[in-house]
């Protein structure tokens, strides 16, 4: 599903050259739930940006869902993000001026779907995260856990091949964090591939395996938690 070989990302200023990613090689199979761990400054965010096609990289190859995405135009990158990737951010990144419905609608808008199809998807996704009664609430009227569930609904509505989660529980208290993790696990069980960046071992422990980043490199290989399950990907929304 996600295959990186020798990925390098260098930030240059006049004085210093920082290797944010240095020869990162990684292979995530379809249906896997992988945690990417590392301390702050280890290159986690850069990894996420590269993996999510939010940023370009300087060397290596990256294949996503069988497609070489190493050198794409901005427009193609945008389209690929829209169709194949779902993001869950630490700070939720809901648009505060839009209600739950319109927020979940966001990725679908850029897919030029008919209004009817969008509505069906939105309602079903919001129902899956248990927020049907809050359809026309604004983000500011929701708790942190509810906001993150809206963000997850936004992902589900888009039915992506790959879900990238960036510290999804980082801004939540323990109870809410657990709820969100359970939801992610459920989504993974129903076939979605998830790559989750985190620095808390408790969260990483819920994933099938963890990768550690240090100074932009992958160290000590993979840690496996539990065994691989092969579940057919796709049709995620229908499966849950």
């Amino acid at each position: 599903m996600l295959k990186m070989t020798g990925i390098r990302k260098v930030y240059r200023t006049d004085l210093v050259e920082t290797h944010a990613l240095d020869d990162v090689t990684l292979d995530v199979k379809a249906g896997e739930f992988v945690a990417v761990m590392g301390r702050s400054g280890s290159g986690k965010t850069t990894f996420l940006n590269v993996a999510g096609l939010l940023d370009t990289f300087d060397g290596g190859t990256y294949t996503l869902d069988g497609m070489d995405v190493s050198r794409l135009s901005d427009a193609t990158m945008s389209r690929t993000r829209n169709e194949k990737i779902g993001f869950i951010f630490q700070s939720f990144n809901l648009i505060p001026d839009l209600d739950v419905f319109d927020n979940v609608d966001l990725p679908l808008r850029y897919r030029r779907m008919t209004a009817k199809e969008r509505k069906e998807r939105i309602l079903s996704a919001v129902e899956k995260v248990g927020l049907s009664s809050r359809l026309h609430h604004l983000p500011s009227q929701l708790s942190g856990g509810q906001q993150q569930r809206v963000a997850i609904a936004r992902v589900l509505a888009g039915d992506p091949r790959l879900i990238l989660a960036d510290e999804p529980t980082g801004n939540l208290d323990t109870l809410m964090a657990r709820e969100v993790m359970e939801l992610l696990l459920k989504i993974n069980e129903q076939g979605a591939t998830i790559v989750m960046v985190t620095h808390t071992p408790e969260c990483a422990a819920r994933a099938q395996r963890a990768i550690h980043l240090l100074d932009g490199r992958v160290v000590d290989g993979d840690s496996h938690f539990g065994h691989l399950r092969s579940v057919p990907t796709g049709a995620l929304a229908a499966a849950i």
């Binding site: 389209r79 993000r81 829209n82 169709e83 990725p107």
Partner: peptide, 16 residues
């Protein structure tokens, strides 16, 4: 800025 970044991350084209 952040909302625009989010929209872009969720697949909005520059022209969008």
């Amino acid at each position: 800025t952040r909302h625009i970044g989010t929209r872009r991350a969720l697949g909005a084209q520059k022209t969008d």
